[in-house]
């Protein structure tokens, strides 16, 4: 090997080392920039989740971790009639359990608010004063949910409530009742309020999706001979479909996390005899109301997470 080769080999190595140095510097820089975000993420998200996941397998004396009990908390929670009340479900009697109530919210609230959101967005699309109308409908969503809950109490009040007053005006006095305290109908009264609030959100997403559609596509469809109905099904609906996925999933997440409206109407019990309790209420009561059952609170919170997390992940990965 000549000296030349040695030198070449040496400089070659040197270059390689330099590349590694650059990569290392980059990696360090990346790490440094990630530290603040990751720290917060660990403390407020990953930490509690891991803590709950572990804690759900242990017995608790108030807030103190005791012995490992395996699936005890899980079995106890999932068989608790407060979470799923099988016999009442069979008879369609409330309470049916918090998880069932949550799913009922999903089944009724989500399709309804999605539908009304799209309908209003379409209705407002070509209207004069659409900005004002949109703002008015969306205003509901900007109000804290706890306030919405209180407003609903006013609306459904047996004496002063505008809803009962409306029934009286329409000569339907036989329907007048204390809506939020009647176990068999209260949950629908609350869901109706939730739909009103969430429709504003759906409408806003649909409105922006509609305004993103090139107007010449609609005109082209008109010239091609498509009537309003065909224009909707053939052109508009396929183009706003991706937004529908977002609206539906955001709706599911919103109702799975439901707490404030129910709490405002029915307190920590979730209505008379837990008639419209939801998972959030059960977590709260298990964790902070005597008898404190921390293990159950962790299990129920994790059930909520299991339902919501895949949906959140799906939205986050959407194009």
């Amino acid at each position: 090997m000549s000296l030349r080769d040695h030198i070449d080999g040496f400089t070659g190595d040197h270059k390689l080392g330099e590349d590694l140095n650059v990569d290392r510097e980059k990696a360090i820089a990346i790490a440094v920039f990630l530290v603040p975000g990751l720290t917060l993420f660990m403390i407020f998200s990953v930490g509690p989740i891991v803590y709950s996941a572990i804690g759900s397998f242990y017995a608790w004396d108030t807030f103190t971790m005791q012995d490992f009990v395996g699936l005890d908390n899980w079995i106890r929670s999932l068989t608790d009639p407060l979470i799923i009340h099988w016999s009442n479900i069979r008879e369609f009697q409330y309470p049916m359990g918090a998880l069932t109530h949550n799913l009922l919210w999903v089944v009724v609230h989500v399709p309804a608010s999605t539908f009304f959101g799209l309908a209003l967005a379409l209705l407002f699309a070509d209207l004069k004063g659409r900005r004002i109308l949109r703002s008015m409908v969306f205003a509901g969503f900007t109000v804290p949910p706890i306030v919405i809950g209180l407003v609903l109490m006013f609306i459904y009040d047996p004496q002063a409530g505008i809803f009962n007053e409306l029934l009286r005006v329409l000569d339907q006095g036989q329907w007048v009742r204390n809506w939020t305290q009647s176990p068999q109908v209260a949950i629908y009264a609350l869901i109706a309020g939730g739909i009103w609030v969430h429709t504003g959100f759906s409408m806003l997403l649909y409105s922006s999706a509609l305004s993103a559609i090139d107007p010449s596509l609609i005109e082209s469809a008109k010239v091609d001979g498509a009537g309003p109905w065909r224009r909707f099904w053939d052109i508009i609906w396929p183009l706003v479909k991706p937004v529908t996925a977002v609206v539906v999933i955001m709706g599911i997440i919103w109702v799975m996390r439901m707490f404030d409206i129910v709490y405002a109407a029915g307190g920590a019990a979730g209505g008379p005899n837990h008639a419209y309790s939801v998972l959030g209420i059960e977590v709260y009561r298990a964790a902070f109301r005597p008898e404190i059952d921390y293990g159950m609170a962790m299990v129920v919170a994790l059930i909520q997470l299991f339902i919501v997390a895949p949906l959140a992940l799906y939205i986050a990965r959407m194009n």
């Binding site: 090139d214 010449s216 596509l217 005109e219 082209s220 469809a221 008109k222 010239v223 091609d224 001979g225 498509a226 053939d234 052109i235 183009l239």
Partner: peptide, 17 residues
């Protein structure tokens, strides 16, 4: 437009994406 039986080509083509 469809009753008039006209066909139109738009500046941006307006093809259904």
């Amino acid at each position: 437009p469809s009753d008039r039986n006209v066909a139109m080509v738009f500046q941006n083509y307006a093809l259904y994406p």
